[in-house]
């Protein structure tokens, strides 16, 4: 069967600087993110791999605690970052409190307002929104050749993607309302022959939010700059879920670059003296690899073997990078 080489994607499309691996939980998204970061860093590119998952596992794979420490150098050219959403929310709440105190010269936040600030932080969407916002910071700040998003499992990833378009539509609506309000202000001011209006601070704030959301969602759906890879394995449920997810992602205009099969058991095993259990697994795998080939014909970029042990630490990451990209020099 013909495979387009994974490294060729990077060579042929050097503008695709935002790299994402998506797939069901536990299939190897973080592993592939880390190995790809390793590969690109070895090629001399400055790479940042960061996690948008509140339960991030980059620290585990690099065997180094990077949680909430910003972009941390793992090796030359390779930086990794895990966002501490909780910390960011707390800082943000404090910022809002300070702003209220400063704006109105208050000594203390009114109870009603304080309880709202606290309740807002407890909302389930708060963590995701905070991460979303920090990702915008990371991408806007720049300084790297490649950004690798270690994505959350499928469902959450869809939520993450849809959030961009929902936010976008919502902000459009209220910005319009705000603009209309401003027109009424203008009418009243003109009739009364008052001088120019003060700037509408809220409108400016809304435009700022809109701008940030647009930046993030435009990257996620930019075919020229973004490469989105699906990770799957030779199992029925995984294949079915991936097909469904790919359809949904297509609806959000996510530019799908191809599929990578992970955890492929070596075929040679079948000729060896192996237990029945393993034989069954191999037969099953053979069947589903065929299914995958039919289902995603022409879009399979690589198939990566099951490793003899779990992928953590630099030696295993390097091994994984070789399995995915071949020669690293």
């Amino acid at each position: 069967m013909i495979r387009i080489s994974l490294s060729r994607i990077f060579e042929e499309y050097p503008d695709r600087r935002y790299i994402m691996f998506g797939g069901k939980g536990g299939l190897g998204k973080t592993t592939f993110s880390a190995a790809t970061a390793y590969y690109l860093a070895k090629k001399g590119k400055r790479v940042l791999v960061f996690s948008v998952d509140p339960q991030a596992s980059l620290s585990d794979i690099f065997k180094q605690d990077i949680f909430g420490k910003g972009a941390t150098e793992i090796m030359p050219n390779l930086y990794a970052q895990e966002i501490d959403a909780d910390h960011r929310v707390k800082e943000y709440q404090q910022e809002i409190r300070q702003k209220i105190l400063d704006m109105y010269g208050m000594e203390q936040i009114p109870d009603e307002i304080e309880s709202y600030i606290q309740a807002a932080a407890a909302e389930p969407a708060m963590e995701e929104s905070a991460i979303f916002d920090e990702v915008v910071d990371i991408v806007v700040t720049g300084g790297f050749d490649y950004y690798i998003y270690d994505l959350v499992p499928l469902g959450h990833a869809l939520y993450y993607l849809s959030m961009a378009s929902v936010y976008d539509a919502w902000i459009d609506k209220i910005t319009n309302l705000r603009t209309q309000m401003r027109e009424y202000d203008q009418v009243a001011a003109t009739i009364k022959r008052e001088k120019t209006l003060d700037e509408d601070a809220i409108l400016n704030e809304l435009l700022y939010i809109k701008d940030r959301i647009n930046k993030s969602s435009s990257i996620l759906t930019d075919k020229a700059k973004t490469a989105f890879f699906f990770v799957l394995t030779g199992e029925e449920m995984v294949i079915k879920d991936t097909v469904k997810a790919a359809e949904l992602f297509a609806k959000f205009d996510v530019p799908l670059s191809g599929y990578i099969i992970n955890r492929v058991l070596p075929k040679e095993l079948i000729n060896q003296n192996i237990p029945e259990y393993l034989k069954n697994r191999l037969t099953m795998q053979e069947h589903y690899l065929k299914v995958i080939d039919e289902q995603f014909a022409g879009q399979i970029l690589a198939s990566v073997p099951e490793m003899e042990r779990d992928v953590t630490g630099m030696a295993m990451i390097e091994k994984m990078a070789r399995a995915m990209y071949g020669d690293l020099s």
Binding site: Y104, E112, Y116, A125, S129, I202
Partner: peptide, 24 residues
Amino acid sequence: DMLGVPILPPYYSLRLLPYVVPQI
């Protein structure tokens, strides 16, 4: 959501809170 009507993801609504404190 102050009245129990959840409409907006809260992260950005907090940004606007300071401006509407007097009207609340």
